[in-house]
Write a protein that binds this DNA or RNA. Structure first.
Lengths: 150, 150
DNA sequence: TTTCAATGGTTACAGATGAAACCAGTTTGG
DNA sequence: CCAAACTGGTTTCATCTGTAACCATTGAAA
């Protein structure tokens, strides 16, 4: 059985490359929204979004939940705090822990961004017919299960 | 018609976030392979992979093809050149242009990595049943069409 | 208790990144 | 011809990133 004398890889159809390129393009165009609007970075947006969704959380929880490295979270929290969009509350039991939550000003920013995010996503999925949309959601879920939970 | 008084966004089901997290995880685990094995960075791997696939190309073409910023390509090319895995040839007509190609040593590295890449992808897709795999491929293709070509 | 490992969070450092300025060299339009 | 606009590619600079070291606190073990 002969080996092919020069195996090549088609980068355009290689899964890691495709995922990256897609994530990059989508992320970039969505980030224009919160960046231009409020000068938020991506880690800041994620932190804001996580706290907006869950209310109060510790930095560690925010990181776990939004898949961010703890130094990213730390810096994002500091930045949001400087703008007074977030405040920290000490924990009664454990003085290492800080409970984070959005201030009313932070809430307002969050509430302004949520509909924009939803519209962005709807526009994107709106370009696909029903079958394709289902494939996207099913495919993502399948990959998440295979890749992330283990 | 009443507005909901506080709209929230579920980050875990938000498309840009999901794509990013997935791309990040997949990319990170694949990059372990070429990083540990040959100390390549991601832009270097992509450049190598593009030249391995297409033979000779200019830096601009590599960038267009692998979706990389031109400064990334420039630096990756310089790094690969330092290791003598790539060489530049001047263009006869246009002295701004450089034609890039892998040296035999670069070819060898590429040929060692290709099967690893294929195995990596096969392992990943192998965790999915046929239906899911089809959904992944169809979903990716649909998103690519909606997002990238326009 | 005292000690030692673990945990929440920040910081220092070294690399990687993109925007914009840059330097050839090339084309276009007067 | 010559100037201006453009193009391929590199470099500078300011910012962002992850690793690892760090500080403070807590919990468990002895």
């Amino acid at each position: 059985m002969a080996m092919p004398d020069r195996e090549i890889l088609s980068l355009e159809s290689f899964l890691p490359y495709r995922l990256n390129r897609l994530a990059d393009a989508v992320s970039r165009s969505f980030s224009d929204i919160y960046r231009q609007r409020h000068g938020l970075t991506r880690p800041e947006w994620r932190t804001l979004a996580t706290l907006g969704q869950y209310g109060t959380m510790t930095a560690t929880e925010v990181g776990a939940h939004s898949s961010m490295h703890k130094t990213k979270v730390s810096r994002a929290v500091a930045a949001l705090e400087r703008r007074r969009w977030l405040k920290r509350r000490a924990d009664g039991q454990d003085r290492r822990v800080e409970h984070l939550e959005l201030t009313p000003a932070g809430q307002r920013v969050y509430e302004e961004l949520v509909p924009l995010a939803k519209t962005f996503e709807a526009d994107l999925l709106g370009k696909l017919d029903m079958r394709k949309r289902e494939a996207v959601l099913k495919g993502l879920a399948a990959l998440e299960e295979a890749v992330l939970t283990k």
